[in-house]
Write a protein that binds this DNA or RNA. Structure first.
Lengths: 193, 193
DNA sequence: TCTCCTCTAGATAGATCGCTCCATACAGAG
DNA sequence: CTCTGTATGGAGCGATCTATCTAGAGGAGA
């Protein structure tokens, strides 16, 4: 089945992009890792690496968002949802040897000033995350402006903590970012009453 | 003069690494940009690209730290120092078309799971920044544990905001991170009295 | 069976990668 | 002057990069 091959290519590429970035990952490495024929890559993605990268960015962004949404849905309230997200991120970092963090952060920085179509793809993913987080806070009764600022602040804190934690091979930055973010949400909720 | 050539190579490499990362930057591109002889690169850095990259990471990290220290020294107190740092980061982003952000963030993510010596170099730079910021907060009378947590939180927020701002081509994330960070420092200072 | 279409096989082009080599230029020391 | 060590000039190595090409395998429908 063709669909399966295409999926394997995207998934393998997503893992490689997440761990080593865009430029350091070769198309041959992707198809080898995916156990897919080399020709199939250019069959499914005629425009080559960039088209594949666009698909990987969108796909990875969507999967990560669904993962976070699941954590929130499994939590009793928004506050513990935020707490569980940061705790889960720290746990994943430890379990994967600080390899699996944000799926698109490395690529986003690489392409931000060098590849406009890919930059736009990363921007759309981040904006989608921000909107999803904003909606969570809106549902908790937080006013719109505060909700969006909270969302951007939390995602920024998460990304920065991913970076520092991976470099230092320690979850200390992630733990601190989690505590700070939980406090920020708690303060916003306290404003309501 | 030889020293001049070596400096030009490091400076040109620093600019390229900052904007497009490690893997996407070729050694030939570096010497071309530096207007330096190709042979000189391997004369000054016999171990090649990795040795040069180590030097670039250290050099960039040191320069960025000095820039931040200067902003703090030019500010009347710690609180406005933090405020001016984030405001300056936002201004630089705008002025450079969102190209000049953290000098080592892209490289740090690229090498975190693929190149242990370079990962250590980035970790040392971040730790140096954290220590410098911690010292500023200690000097303001903030207790040690809180000071370090504040420092890590602020640098993490800065890095995350750099990432989101570059991707979105907007300083909104940086402005929010600045406001949040200023509030965090203000709260820590209020604890003292 | 023949046709059509999707997908795979594999060679290869053309450029670029990091890096090595040797010859030369040129300064200061003796 | 010669000798010595540092820096430059530049060709070119083998490997790898992305991408393209033609040919053919395999299945579904007429």
């Amino acid at each position: 089945m063709s669909t399966n091959t295409k999926e394997r290519i995207v998934d393998a590429g997503a893992t490689l992009f997440r761990r080593q970035g865009y430029a350091a990952t070769g198309v041959k490495q992707i198809v080898t890792e995916a156990e897919a024929p080399f020709s199939s890559l250019y069959h499914f993605f005629p425009d080559g690496k960039d088209e594949l990268a666009t698909e990987i960015i969108r796909s990875s962004g969507h999967m990560f968002q669904q993962l976070v949404e699941f954590v929130f849905d499994s939590s009793p309230d928004v506050l513990s949802g935020v707490e569980n997200c940061f705790a889960g991120a720290a746990e994943t970092l430890r379990q994967t040897g600080y390899a699996d963090a944000c799926p698109i952060a490395t690529v986003a920085l690489e392409v931000a000033s060098t590849n406009e179509p890919l930059r736009e793809a990363t921007a759309e993913v981040f904006e989608s995350w921000i909107k999803a987080a904003t909606d969570r806070f809106l549902a908790a009764g937080i006013p719109e402006k505060t909700a969006r600022e909270l969302a951007i602040g939390l995602i920024g804190a998460l990304e920065g903590a991913f970076l520092l934690s991976r470099a230092a091979r320690s979850t200390e930055p992630m733990d601190i970012a989690g505590a700070t973010s939980v406090a920020a949400v708690r303060a916003a909720l306290a404003q309501l009453s």
